[in-house]
């Protein structure tokens, strides 16, 4: 066979196979068509589409299906972040409240100075290991150990240890929740980004007991709850807790707190209010 003939036959054969296969695909596509929620396709369009699995679903398709089914929040995609969440929120008709970006927040103010060190810890530099070994670095049983398990687990490098307590950089945080799962003391929670006022303590003991172990701990005096006009701060046992939905960031509770354990609203947030 001459070369041109071989080329011709090859082209013809491949074209023919392509047409047959294409027709087969079209036929199967029609025959086995599964009606999908229109929104699912739209949501899928908004997602980045790199199937990284960071959201915890098997891929962008699965994440889109979960969002439409209501099993996942619209901001489930940490890669797309705010802009993508907004677009999806538009499709899903979700209001801005759920749309709001969340950030991690460490509920402890017990720095090395405030809650003194019990001794010199020599061991594995990891909070979970220390807790397993029954070690408490500071005098407070509830507080941040300051060994930085959350720092090493944070994929964004958003957590730093400042004076023996983990502090989250709100700008860098993507609310993946890894630190929340990692902290053996359960100190880290996700709060809406615009809510700055929060009780920065997890010590559930009574006031005098708290005073003994930490100068910055919540003593359960209930002054803040009486101060609040919006029903946004309540006692949870011996511990005050802010209800973020009701809080207007007025900052009165923070001003009144005798131990200064309530974080004041950020100046920028106060202007908005």
């Amino acid at each position: 066979m001459s070369a041109p003939l071989i080329i011709l036959i090859t082209t013809l054969v491949i074209t023919a196979i392509g047409i047959v296969v294409g027709a087969g695909l079209v036929f199967t596509g029609k025959k086995f068509h599964v009606p999908v929620d229109e929104r699912e396709a739209e949501v899928r369009e908004c997602l980045p589409g790199n199937n990284c699995g960071a959201c915890g679903f098997a891929g962008c398709d699965a994440a889109a299906a979960a969002i439409v089914a209501g099993d996942a929040p619209v901001n489930v995609c940490p890669v797309g972040g705010g802009p993508v969440a907004e677009k999806i929120g538009g499709i899903m008709g979700t209001d801005a409240e759920i749309l709001e970006r969340q950030v991690a927040f460490v509920r402890c103010k017990g720095t090395c100075e405030a809650s003194g060190l019990q001794g010199n810890y020599v061991g594995i530099n990891d909070c979970r290991s220390a807790v397993l070994g029954g070690v408490n670095l500071k005098n407070c049983d509830y507080g941040c150990l300051g060994l930085g398990s959350c720092v090493s687990v944070c994929p964004q490098g958003a957590i730093k240890l400042v004076d023996g307590v983990a502090v989250v950089n709100r700008k860098l945080c993507v609310a993946c929740g890894l630190c929340v799962k990692t902290c053996p003391k359960g100190l880290i929670e996700l709060v809406p980004e615009s809510k700055f006022v929060a009780v920065q303590c997890m010590n559930r003991d009574k006031g005098p007991q708290v005073k003994k172990v930490c100068s910055a701990g919540c003593i359960g005096c209930t002054l803040c709850t009486r101060q609040c006009e919006f029903d946004a701060i309540h006692m949870d046992g011996n511990l005050a807790r802010v209800t973020y939905e009701n809080c207007t960031q007025c900052g009165k509770c923070a001003e009144k707190c005798p131990v200064g354990v309530i974080t004041p609203p950020c100046p920028a947030a106060r202007k908005e209010a």
Partner: peptide, 21 residues
């Protein structure tokens, strides 16, 4: 047809379509 040399490309084509189906 004497197109043995094309088998890899054609197999890829056919297998990909098959999985889609």
């Amino acid at each position: 047809l004497g197109l043995d040399f094309m088998k890899m490309i054609i197999f890829i084509l056919v297998i990909a379509a098959l999985v889609q189906i």
